[in-house]
Amino acid sequence: MTITVRAAAKFNLHLGVGPVREDGFHPLATVYQAIGLYDDVTVSEAAEWQVTLTAEDHIALGEIPTGDDNIVVRAGRAIAAHHGIDKAAKVAIHKGIPVAGGLAGGSADAAATLVALDRLWALETSDEDLLSLAGQLGSDVPFALIGATAIGGGRGEIVEPVTDNGSWWWVAVGNEQGLSTPAVYRAFDELAGTEIGDPQVPESLLMALEKGDASLLAEALTNDLQAPALALRPDLAQTFADGAEAGALAVQLSGSGPTVLMLCRDAAHAREVAGAMQAKAYDRVWTAPGPVAGAHVVTY
């Protein structure tokens, strides 16, 4: 028996970052949106943990571990320990989410693994317990379970759905050179200094989502990690300029980068912007709708 669960990439419509805490983490105020780039995770019974990887075109797999340090193995062991069972599984991941791109593909895989093993082993884990396990695995994993559009607090792991009446379209432009999240946060600390307060979610963004107005959303997109990321990778500024020239309503870095997201009016406009970026010799270009569902079973 196999179970396949699909989980989506995330984009931070807003990413507000506060001063580093004593535990080394930064408080966040973020608005997540799940967008239509997906990883599929298929689990089956096995005597020991196994991880296999395949991917769509233009997605490199070299940086993903397949041993015990893969987040899906940690997810599997966490849900087994939670139920007091001694089980293992084979986990086959097919990636459609760019790797190390600021789109939380690893978190999506962890969320999908929790759901898939819950079904495979007929554990009937409560939603509350699944979210608790997800929060132990990483800041973005609880949102990957829920999907749609939501506010994230704490380190991002406290998730609250928000009203989103929009039907949004995005163009995602990947970059073959990764960008270290810890390095971006260090650069943020250096640039921000000590004169920053606790982050807040802007009301203008929540209003844009409630109204479903793309022009209002374009004005409300913000990412506090964008400036430090561009300081580390000034070459990405050209992608921003090319996106604006291609007609995107707004251009923003996804998380800590290096993937760049471009807001479009509708599906036709997204195809136009994607075509313009491809004409400029970008070879990692995807169109994606949002919001989409969180981790969900697609086959039994």
Rank of each mutant, 00 (worst) to 15 (best):
V5A: 00
G255C: 02
W170H: 08
A281T: 14
E219T: 13
A267F: 03
V99N: 13
K10A: 02
G197H: 11
G275W: 03
H296Q: 13
I35Q: 04
V273R: 01
G24V: 08
I79N: 02
L221T: 00
V273A: 01
S215K: 12
T299A: 14
S254N: 08
N165H: 12
P161I: 08
G18C: 08
Y185E: 05
I158W: 02
Q50K: 14
S180E: 03
D127E: 15
N70G: 05
G193W: 09
D242G: 10
E56K: 12
T194I: 04
V99W: 15
D68K: 12
K90W: 10
G153W: 11
T66V: 15
A108W: 02
R233I: 02
A276G: 04
E48L: 10
A288S: 12
S167Q: 15
I64P: 12
I3L: 05
L205S: 03
V115P: 04
E124Y: 07
A293R: 13
S180V: 06
A88N: 09
L179P: 06
L131F: 09
V99S: 14
T299Q: 13
V141N: 09
M1V: 08
G101Y: 10
T287H: 02
V273C: 06
V298S: 07
V184I: 08
A214K: 10
G275M: 03
A214V: 15
E160K: 13
V260D: 02
P142K: 01
S139D: 04
P161N: 10
V292P: 12
E272I: 07
